[in-house]
Design a protein around this nucleic acid. Structure first.
Lengths: 237, 237
DNA sequence: CATATCTTCTTGTCTGACAAGAAAGAAGAC
DNA sequence: GTCTTCTTTCTTGTCAGACAAGAAGATATG
């Protein structure tokens, strides 16, 4: 560790090493299939201990960026970035852009749900709808019911990827909205209009009318975006 | 690929510990905001050293599932799963389902691209088109040119999330297709028909006709799915 | 030449140690 | 009694060394 101190101290060393290696892979400095330096060499390069390097390597392996073979070394994965979609937005989340992605995804999920709906799917949607309609529940419970409604639709799409992506985007947006306007304003919440939109979606899915279900979902989420005061990013298509 | 790993493989302790803790978070055994056991306690619980626990903790922190505070402990994140979308497919990737998601995403990206296109976006699309048309390039180069064409469209959407998701899904599908039919069959590849489809997409985007661009992209990717022999997941009846 | 063994390198895991940061309790000042 | 400050203790962050397990190349052996 003679002298080569290229890392600033206040950050966590593991974070820095992870970031640098990931950048080198993304930028092509380390090309797919290429053999990486050994943990010992990496430690000497960055001026850190092997434990730090191992934690960074562990993360990158978990993300699918590299493949480690005991006794040999680590190799840059054949398709780096092909396993994990990370929403990292260090400078803040672009809520409007994220909403666009959600609208697109959930609209298609609603179409698929209308085509593949089954009785238990419909029952879960109906249960969630009833949960939002009930006047006795707390606000948090209604948010959960709203999430359950959208999750039920996504699950009915019979496509696990849609289900997981819808859940992912919903959670990400809820978290982003929560931090963006923490206590600053009441959530627009479950007004009668929202309930009407939800029921329109449910009715279309129940009737098996894919196009109408997708359209109803698009309307609902577009309105939700507007209710949050977010500008429309896309002149209508 | 997953089928060829029936051999008894050594279990990495870090993988096991990571999986168990992640499951406990996902299943609610560890609820958001809750304080986790210390590294020492976790190590004693699982019967592993602190180094193994630390690598697992490091991964979970990287995934946003937990937040670690030096001197205190780790806490389950407020929105676990809200940062990383993982394509993990135990039992193999469902290519048809993944294609559905890609079609939906790229179709919308094409619509947005038609609405937001700029001259440099169009130039990159044209360059990629020319690359695929050239008869002198190798097959790999044409695959890269195809990826560049789709990436240029996604970039033109003026929505970074679409750009990254399109890239992510494209890489994941290429990797999955590559492992599914490794050397078993030539990629259907850059036939004249594919070129025609690409040019239809480009023309619609160039003219700024969003609906037509989305439709052309849907047709193109649906055909691509059919050329791979994948059944349509959505019976329209 | 073919094969078995050995050496060496690398990753996987364990152990112990110390620094840095934070919280709880103890001690003193008012 | 209450407030402030110090100390102790716990926890994470980092380092160092050690050994087992696995793999590749070198070497000895037939």
């Amino acid at each position: 560790m003679a002298g080569s101190e290229i890392l600033a101290r206040p950050v966590r060393l593991t974070d820095e090493v992870t970031r640098i290696i990931a950048e080198r892979i993304a930028s092509g400095v380390l090309s797919p299939g290429q053999q990486m330096p050994s943990e010992k060499e990496l430690g000497e390069t960055f001026g850190v201990s092997r434990a730090v390097v191992r934690e960074a390597i562990s993360r990158l392996k978990h993300d699918g960026l590299i493949e480690v073979r005991q006794g040999v070394r680590a190799f840059v994965s054949a398709n780096p970035g092909g396993q994990v979609f990370r929403l990292e937005a260090p400078g803040g989340v672009d809520l409007a852009a994220l909403f666009d992605l959600r609208i697109c995804t959930e609209a298609r999920a609603a179409e698929l749900a209308a085509a593949h709906r089954r009785s238990d799917d419909l029952r879960r949607m109906a249960d969630a709808l009833a949960g939002m309609k009930s006047p006795v529940l707390e606000s948090d419970d209604k948010v959960s019911a709203d999430a359950a409604f959208h999750a039920a639709i996504a699950a009915a799409s019979a496509n696990g990827y849609f289900a997981r992506l819808v859940e992912f985007l919903g959670e990400a947006l809820r978290a982003a909205i929560g931090t963006a306007r923490r206590n600053s304003a009441r959530l627009p919440g479950m007004s009668a209009l929202v309930q009407t939109e939800h029921e329109a979606i449910f009715a279309a899915i129940e009737r098996g009318e894919a196009a109408q279900a997708g359209q109803a979902m698009t309307v609902h989420l577009s309105n939700a975006r507007d209710r949050l005061g977010l500008a429309e990013k896309t002149p209508a298509g």
